[in-house]
Computed example of a mutant assay.
Amino acid sequence: MKRNLSLFAAVGVLFLLTGMFQSWNLALQILNIGVISAIMALGVNMQWGYAGLFSTGIMGSVALGGLAVVIVSSKPVPEAWAAGGPRLLLGLGFGIAVLFAAIFAHRKMKPGRARGWTLAAILIGGFFAYRAIFDPAADAIEAFNPATAGNIGGLGLPSLLAWPVGGLFAGLAAWAIGKAVLGLRSDYLAIATLGIAEIVLAVMKNEDWLARGVKNIIDLPRPWPVPYEVDLQKSAEFLKLSNDWGLDATQASTIFVKLLYLLIFTVVLLAVIFLSERALNSPWGRMMRAIRDNEVAASAMGKDVTARHLQIFVIG
């Protein structure tokens, strides 16, 4: 404990030195990223520390969280939606139907050459039919005002609502991924989850119709109660306060905004720490540690190891 406290104190001193000798804006920006990284680390710790699942796909979950903010909180683009939205949904629905048809055929048909050829026909033919429906719709959406839009837009809702939606996106993706790869262990699971996370990132970077790919998205709303710096700089009370502290209004506004973000992120971090510790010390947590230490013994005691692994994968 003394060693850990000493290390944390040393890092705190580095933040103070960065603020005093470089910039408080820079120090707070690094600190905010550190708090967000701590939240991510808790998710990894649940998967690896609680259940012994060595997953390296956390960045895929983070990317889906960012996608949720765009879909939920960005401004609607009705023109882009009108240009290709309905056909886009039709294409996605058709693609899902093709996958279900392939699964149904695989389960109902007897193993052999006939099943192999049937699956190949469903998947290959379905792929080309899916692209014939989907690609023109995506091109039409991306062609509308590509400088500032070129995507389907969002719902225009407050960004705080997007955070639980991001968790839902990541959890659903983890469920689907877990169904496919949780039979693997150790390094093989790490490689599989890393590869899937890279696939998620590649799709989001290249499908501009979804969230503009690698292009900027402007006018995303900030979570309550974080204001915009411009609004603060127009406030007489804030200008007076910044003058009293001997700070430039621009610098003071950016520092104030980062402090509010730090407050929000810290509240989330403390809530996750509290809930994860309560879970760890509960009967459920003791069961997870027992599964981690000896899966065979836990299974012999009637625990569904596969279901519990999938559960912790989703929670993480």
Rank of each mutant, 00 (worst) to 15 (best):
F256A: 15
I177R: 05
E237Q: 11
D219W: 01
D244N: 12
A174P: 06
W224P: 07
V257T: 12
L155Q: 13
A173N: 00
A180T: 14
Q233S: 03
F169E: 08
D231R: 04
L247T: 08
S242M: 10
P227W: 00
P221Q: 03
Y228A: 00
L184K: 13
A202I: 15
L194E: 10
L189R: 09
L241H: 09
P164E: 09
I255H: 02
P225Y: 05
L189Q: 09
W245A: 14
G195W: 13
E229G: 05
I196E: 13
R185P: 05
A190G: 10
L220E: 00
I199P: 06
D248W: 04
V181G: 01
G195D: 15
G246E: 09
L182F: 08
A236M: 12
P227V: 02
D248K: 08
A174E: 08
S235K: 01
A174I: 11
L259N: 04
L247I: 02
A176I: 13
E229P: 00
W163K: 01
I255D: 04
A162V: 11
E237S: 15
V230I: 11
I199V: 14
N216P: 00
W245F: 15
A174L: 08
L172A: 11
V214T: 15
V203C: 12
T254M: 15
W163M: 15
K240A: 14
K179E: 14
V165W: 06
L155T: 13
A249Y: 05
F169V: 07
P223M: 12
K240P: 04
V181Q: 01
A174C: 14
Y188T: 12
W163N: 00
P223G: 09
D208W: 08
L157M: 14
G195V: 14
L239S: 15
L210M: 07
Q233I: 00
L220M: 11
I196P: 12
A174T: 05
L241K: 13
W224A: 09
A211E: 03
L184I: 11
P227F: 04
K205P: 04
V203Y: 12
L160A: 09
Q233R: 14
E229T: 06
L220G: 01
R212V: 09
S159A: 14
A192H: 14
F256Q: 06
S186G: 05
R212L: 08
A252P: 01
L259F: 11
P223A: 13
A190R: 04
R212A: 11
L189Y: 11
G167T: 10
G156T: 08
D208I: 11
G166K: 06
L220I: 03
M204P: 01
I218L: 03
L232D: 02
L157S: 03
Q251D: 14
P223L: 10
K215F: 00
L182I: 06
I177E: 09
W224D: 07
L232K: 03
L220H: 03
W163D: 02
D244K: 10
I255V: 15
A170G: 07
